[in-house]
Design a protein around this nucleic acid. Structure first.
Lengths: 201, 201
DNA sequence: GTCTATAGGTCGATAGAC
DNA sequence: GTCTATCGACCTATAGAC
């Protein structure tokens, strides 16, 4: 491993991205101001242009990190089960990981989720391309569950995936730390999604 | 019934609100421009101030209509079952109605859902107050299902409600008319939520 | 790398003629 | 009710000193 000195430049750049992620999460794309990002990062708005070409350039880089973080959180939890884990166990792990990531209020991941539908068309197109492998990963887990007979094959896998992801993503909108811990919500979501709400007598 | 003449003023006012609902749905709160609303309504931006005190005033009125439309769509479908319908049937009807309302792309309802987390704090506070009775309506149906033994009582009713509503609301973000009809998605959502994805052998 | 200063543009809102 | 004209605020982005 070669030396990888931590330069001040990199630290400041990271502070700007951290600030941008936080502002994007709570203001949305169009509501995000460079002045607020600069304040959080402890510099002046004009300085941002020393690190990024434009506001959109900064935002796009934040969202790229957000997708990667979300994907990695899910993948690591799933892979930790080992190569012999059954598909249903992998699905449980994926749901819990995705939800806990969002409820832990990771700014990058939740900013990305929230802003995807708000950014300009060309930026969204590139972002969707980034998320495609993440989507395939979910899709494969769901299909595997149907293929080995552990889950219902009468439902359209794409609809199942979107409804599931929606249930998880929307939690960002209403969850407030307090009464329910993130793991409690995750347990409820896993149980609800897999076993259903109704009682089969 | 007294005469209720349709004044031109009211028609124009409605066109402005229709335009605002559409723009809000696809641009979000901060991304909405009066110029785009005016274009859709067929007038000039300055004219909007003849009908509304301010941009926020217009937006708040659109969201108020949105909440009412969503609530009425759900309530009417549920009430149509008659007073003797079992809670589980009422829950099915509520889910289908809410989802179909959103997927049919009603601008007012989906704009409200999308913008709620983006508007200024005081506006959101008033909006949440409006939605409270809607929330209680859902809550009662869920509790009734648990009370009569048709649904699981081991899950926190609030968590169940939020996860369910989230699954439905997020559909606005990804649904595109085409392969799947709104009723198909609604059927899948009802089946998935009530019976679960896994197969109980 | 960080600052001051400012250009250039967009938008919400108002004033007043018609 | 709808128009033209315009003000003032705010924001992105650039230029250039230090």
């Amino acid at each position: 491993m070669p030396e990888k000195p931590v330069r001040k430049s990199d630290l400041t750049r990271t502070r700007v991205m951290d600030g941008a992620a936080r502002v994007l999460r709570q203001r949305g794309y169009a509501g995000t101001r460079l002045s607020e990002i600069a304040e959080l990062a402890g510099l002046l708005p004009a300085n941002i242009y020393y690190y990024f070409d434009s506001k959109d350039d900064l935002i796009e880089q934040v969202m790229e990190v957000g997708v990667n973080r979300g994907f990695e959180a899910v993948r690591q939890r799933v892979e930790a089960l080992g190569p012999d884990a059954v598909p249903l166990a992998r699905l449980r792990a994926a749901i819990a990981a995705h939800l806990e990531m969002n409820l832990a209020q990771d700014d990058y991941a939740s900013a990305t989720i929230r802003c995807l539908s708000q950014v300009p068309d060309d930026m969204r197109e590139r972002q969707l391309e980034n998320e495609r492998s993440f989507g395939r990963y979910w899709r494969q887990i769901i299909i595997d569950c149907q293929a080995d007979g552990s889950c219902r094959a009468d439902l359209h896998p794409s609809a199942v995936r979107m409804l599931l992801i929606g249930m998880l993503n929307w939690a960002v909108e209403w969850y407030k730390p307090g009464e329910l811990a993130p793991t409690d919500v995750a347990d409820t979501a896993v149980s609800l999604f897999l076993d259903g709400f109704s009682l089969k007598a």
